[in-house]
């Protein structure tokens, strides 16, 4: 089988804007699912509301498109009702961190055996570009026309502190690494959280000096730094530039998990 067979051919091309990174993350996830060799009938994709949450609609397995922010609650229900199913959640930054924030920390705390792929586009894309909890400091959006004055939410830090078993962050430029991390997440028993920064050319890029889609990808390429390297720099007493995006694997541990297949 190939990734192409996991897609619902009749639904393509999808409705994401030209150059939207969500499509890349779908590719990476399907590639990882393909590598781990799951069967279509035992795999289920769950999502909430938002641009990213349209993703399961293009995948030819069972899927749930649930209410805003509640994807994790539905996924917990599925996993507890039938631990034999493999559950993957697609979610966005607003869906996960703002509206569904409480579900997120408690899913981490319970360490339920699901994999969450968060496509973080740093803005509310579907509703017209309002600032989200992950809009970086100084980022322009329709609700922060003079630049965001609030510090952004570090979702990986939150997941690590709340008790997830596997936490990683990449961007949509790092397709290989992202695929590898999603694969590790799928293999890990317990809650795995993979955050991927994605470009949003229509709402974020257009307002933040990224004229072309490729400009934002170039930015991701030049402004990411591996966690290990950041730690080394700190040990040497060097300053890690504030606008650098920390990427890599943050946590890999073995806390007792809920809902693991007996």
């Amino acid at each position: 089988m190939s990734e192409e067979e996991w897609l619902r051919q009749d639904r393509l091309p999808h409705i994401f804007c030209a150059g939207c990174g969500n499509g890349t993350v779908i590719n990476c996830t399907l590639s990882a699912v393909e590598q781990i060799g799951w069967k279509k009938q035992d795999t289920i994709f769950v999502s909430g509301i938002g641009c990213s949450s349209r993703a399961p609609g293009y995948i030819s397995t069972d899927s749930l498109h649930t209410t805003h922010g509640r994807a994790l609650a539905f996924a917990t229900g599925i996993k507890l009702a039938n631990p034999g199913l493999n559950v993957v959640v697609f979610t966005g930054d607003g869906d996960l961190a703002a509206i569904g924030g409480n579900h997120f920390i408690h899913a981490c705390r319970r360490n339920i055996d699901i994999t969450v792929v968060c496509m973080n586009n740093m803005i509310y894309g579907m509703t017209g570009g309002q600032g989200s909890p992950t809009t970086p400091l100084g980022g322009l959006s329709t609700t922060t026309p003079y630049g965001s004055k609030e510090p952004a939410f570090d979702l990986c830090g939150l997941a690590s502190a709340a008790g997830a078993n596997y936490v990683a962050r990449w961007t949509s430029y790092h397709v290989r690494e992202l695929t590898r991390s999603i694969l590790t997440g799928l293999e890990t028993p317990g809650f795995s959280f993979i955050e991927s920064l994605v470009q949003c050319p229509t709402n974020y890029g257009r307002r933040n000096r990224f004229k072309q889609v490729t400009d934002q990808i170039e930015y991701f390429r030049s402004h990411t730094i591996l966690v290990e390297k950041a730690v080394r720099m700190k040990e040497k007493g060097e300053e890690v530039p504030a606008d650098m995006i920390l990427s890599g694997e943050f946590v890999r541990r073995n806390r007792p998990a809920l809902g693991v297949r007996p």
Partner: peptide
């Protein structure tokens, strides 16, 4: 790489 990064498959 091109196939993976292409958002539109």
């Amino acid at each position: 790489m091109c196939q993976m990064i292409c958002p539109d498959q």
